[in-house]
Computed example of a mutant assay.
Amino acid sequence: MINYNKYMTVRMLHQYIKLSESYIYKKVSSNTIPHIKVNRSTLFDKDIIDHWLANGCEMREDLPQLIKL
């Protein structure tokens, strides 16, 4: 079961980090933002996004791997 308090949609992430939804989709498309796909939905783990932001929005080896559902 997905904990929806921990995971954000693109719209929620847009509101959280103040980047446009289209820019977030570009980052997802280029695989430069940590995300998971659940059916047709793209979700973002808030803790991992916080870590990603703290690392200057760079994907680093030390980011925990998201579990594919």
Rank of each mutant, 00 (worst) to 15 (best):
M1E: 05
M1Q: 03
M1S: 07
I2A: 09
N3A: 13
N3L: 12
N3C: 11
Y4N: 12
Y4H: 12
Y4T: 13
N5W: 08
N5G: 11
N5S: 14
K6N: 11
K6P: 00
M8S: 07
T9E: 02
T9C: 04
R11P: 11
R11D: 14
M12S: 09
M12Y: 01
M12T: 07
L13S: 06
H14R: 15
H14P: 00
Q15A: 15
Y16N: 06
Y16R: 05
I17H: 03
I17A: 03
K18F: 10
L19F: 14
L19D: 06
L19K: 14
S20Y: 07
E21C: 06
S22I: 13
I24K: 07
I24E: 07
I24P: 04
Y25S: 05
K26S: 14
K26H: 12
K26L: 10
K27T: 06
K27H: 09
K27L: 15
K27V: 08
K27N: 10
K27Q: 15
V28A: 10
V28T: 14
V28C: 11
V28P: 06
S30A: 12
T32C: 10
T32V: 14
T32W: 02
I33D: 14
I33Y: 15
I33K: 13
P34F: 01
P34I: 03
P34N: 05
P34V: 03
H35N: 14
I36G: 06
K37A: 03
V38C: 04
N39T: 09
N39D: 08
N39R: 08
R40E: 11
R40F: 02
S41V: 00
S41Y: 08
T42H: 12
L43E: 10
L43R: 09
D45R: 01
D45Q: 01
K46Q: 07
K46S: 03
D47N: 10
D47T: 06
D47E: 14
D47A: 12
D47Q: 10
D47P: 01
I48K: 13
I49Q: 01
D50Y: 06
D50M: 06
H51A: 14
H51W: 13
H51P: 00
W52G: 01
W52M: 02
L53R: 13
L53H: 02
L53E: 13
L53W: 01
A54M: 11
A54K: 14
A54F: 10
N55S: 08
N55G: 02
N55Y: 08
G56R: 00
G56T: 02
G56E: 01
G56C: 03
C57V: 04
C57A: 03
E58R: 08
E58M: 09
E58T: 09
E58L: 12
E58V: 05
M59Q: 07
M59F: 02
M59P: 02
M59G: 02
R60T: 12
E61C: 04
E61H: 07
D62V: 02
D62N: 05
D62L: 00
D62M: 00
Q65F: 08
L66W: 00
L66C: 05
I67R: 04
K68G: 06
K68E: 15
K68A: 08
K68N: 09
L69F: 06
